[in-house]
Write a protein that binds this DNA or RNA. Sequence first.
DNA 1: ATTGAAAGAACCCCGAC
DNA 2: GTCGGGGTTCTTTCAAT
Lengths: 154, 154
Amino acid sequence: MDDTDRKICEILQAQGRASSAELAAAVGLSVSSANERVRRLVAQGVISQWQAVLDREAAGAALCAFVLIDMDFDGEAEAAAELTARPEVLELHHISGAHSYLMKLRLPDTAALQRFLQDVVKPLRAVRRTETMISLDTQKETAAVRILAPETRE
Amino acid sequence: MDDTDRKICEILQAQGRASSAELAAAVGLSVSSANERVRRLVAQGVISQWQAVLDREAAGAALCAFVLIDMDFDGEAEAAAELTARPEVLELHHISGAHSYLMKLRLPDTAALQRFLQDVVKPLRAVRRTETMISLDTQKETAAVRILAPETRE
DNA sequence: ATTGAAAGAACCCCGAC
DNA sequence: GTCGGGGTTCTTTCAAT
């Protein structure tokens, strides 16, 4: 995992369909080498997945909401499993602080959100209380992380 | 945007490098047709991006944190712009409720988090107060949304 | 829109450095 | 690790339906 690998990762985060020829040109290697780098990054698990990112509106998931959930220990695992299985749940984090979980949702609209909370979340035995925050404006939403060289991680 | 398109989108969300031949086999069309469908989905903006998803550990962004931010109106736009420009900030949402913004961060460790809050967030004029929630365990984290047919969106 | 076929581009295996 | 060549696979174009 050197600078060349990091550059390749950066490009592929932004342009997942960049060809080996494009990568090769960007990092100053031959097509074969660039190809080999990508193959290795995938094999090592550095690149864990390839995906198409959909437009939220077009997909019918225009509404983004975050829900803080307070849970009892009793039934917590089942509740978490139930939630992660749901396609509306994009993220579920066990968090530090006053609440147990933070859940990110994508739904068509507020009506669907209301139904989801009522029909899916509230019936879970462990769930004590929820606090919902609706995203009024998503100013940034990316999965691209900066890749740090190990030595620069103080 | 029919059922075939939706199925293609679903596959491409999970396997962004699926070939036209694979898609064709999955939806029961010819290679050319599958290819044409994908081309149209991209042209229409339904597929907004292709990307490689990196392993967080390998990228040196093992720590995930969410920060609730209270802001004054004065200087809010500048603060938001400053934050979205940062690579550590994966998401920034203007939210309803008691707080102004919810920010998702990915950083190497808690030391980096402390530094980011101290050096980047606190100095912003509009920022009044922050409340940080650290993800102890990310149980689910995906960008894949379910694609709903317009008629099923009640 | 969908198709098959042909042309073009990309990927991948391999032997050499 | 890197490279170039050659076979294979994939994408893209096109005329026809």
